[in-house]
Design a protein around this nucleic acid. Structure first.
Length: 359
DNA sequence: AAATCGGGGAA
DNA sequence: TTCCCAGATTT
């Protein structure tokens, strides 16, 4: 939008020159993408709902990690109406393990809005009005599902733009993201906005990678100023860097006739609200501690956890310490289960086979 | 503008 | 280990 305004303000010869360069990048990217694209599940559909689900799952998540979740999710909820009719706990159960659970909650809320409206929004502003859909996702859905001419700005795009223009500006700054977005918008191939956006992101994911960029295999290396300057590996510049916080915690594994004791986190909590996890020692004060099973690491954002797991015995869950339940393996798959619980159970299973090979 | 989100994989 | 991923939302 802004790039268009800028172009309109230029005199003819400059405008044509600028447009020629822009179109060349768009054309080269589309031609390359047709041959080099990865055959990912969400690229086999034009269904806006499926494209939407993929874009939400792909937020801050690699394609490889999202694929199994995407398949299961659409098997369970094949349409926006099916999703709108689901309960939140069921949706979170399917999502559990993928992280950033507000994505799932917002997706469900938005699905209910879309189902109630009776139609899927096609304009970028209407898309952005839905919960969980911000600038990137709105542009992605509008362009890929509906052919609207909006350039996406994600981590890949920021990296490619920084290198092509040899720009050392901090990509963490809002002003830089806006400016880089205008550059991507100027590159956009109007005949196929969705294809162009996917091509630009695919280039960032497979060729113009964060480390060890494959410049010799790049379809736009001739237009890349960082490639000419030899600075590609130093770009993009990202100044803000938060120090990770180390946290040590403990969990208790209490088993009784094939079931394990779990505790549900309060619904009022901001994070993992309503998720089930193994109880910690302070949540099970009467438990008799058993053998330690080891510890595992867990990381999210800038938190790094080391969680020790020990066996324990308890006759019954204590009153006043929250909601507890004994669950069998089948139940565990049907509730929102925290990844720490999953890792703790895995650790226990490993300890079991190590000490008792028959089991 | 900066923090938060309770994942995870590649190098 | 570190970095950062098809980011959005809240503070």
């Amino acid at each position: 939008m802004n790039a268009d305004k800028e172009n309109q303000g230029l005199i003819g010869v400059h405008r044509r020159s600028s447009a020629t360069i822009s179109n060349r990048i768009g054309r080269l990217l589309l031609a390359w993408y047709r041959k080099a694209y990865r055959d990912l599940p969400w690229r086999r559909t034009c269904d806006p709902y499926r494209i939407w689900v993929s874009e939400i799952m792909l937020q801050q998540t690699r394609a490889a990690a999202a694929i199994p979740y995407y398949q299961r999710f659409l098997e369970r909820y094949p349409s926006v109406e099916a999703l709108a009719a689901a309960g939140e706990a069921d949706v979170l159960a399917i999502w559990s393990g993928l992280g950033y659970y507000s994505r799932a909650r917002n997706l469900l809320r938005a699905a209910r809005q879309v189902a109630a409206a009776g139609h899927f929004p096609e304009e970028i502003e209407a898309l952005k009005a839905l919960p969980g859909i911000g600038d990137y996702t709105a542009a992605a859905i509008a362009s890929i599902a509906f052919g609207r001419p909006h350039a996406v700005v994600d981590g890949n795009v920021l990296r490619v733009v920084a290198r092509v223009r040899n720009e050392p500006a901090d990509i963490g700054a809002a002003a830089t993201r806006r400016r880089f977005g205008e550059i991507a918008q100027a590159w956009l191939a109007r005949r196929d906005p969705g294809g162009f956006n996917q091509a630009l992101m695919e280039l960032g994911a497979t060729v113009c990678r964060p480390r060890n960029p494959l410049c010799t295999a790049c379809p736009i290396s001739a237009a890349c100023q960082a490639n000419q300057a030899g600075t590609a590996a130093q770009l993009p510049v990202k100044l803000r860097r938060v120090e990770p916080v180390e946290v040590r915690e403990a969990r208790l594994l209490v088993e009784r006739s094939g079931r394990v004791l779990l505790r549900r986190r309060e619904l009022s909590l901001g994070r993992l609200a309503g998720f089930w996890d193994l109880p910690s020692p302070d949540q099970l004060p009467a438990a008799r501690l058993g053998v330690p099973l080891g510890e595992f690491r867990h990381s999210i954002a800038h938190h790094r956890y080391r969680i020790a797991v020990a066996r324990a015995q308890a006759k019954k869950p204590p009153a006043g310490y929250g909601i507890f339940a004994w669950m069998d393996p089948g139940q565990l798959e049907r509730v929102p289960l925290s990844t720490t619980a999953r890792k703790a159970l895995k650790l226990a299973a490993k300890a079991r086979t190590a000490t008792c090979p028959r089991a």
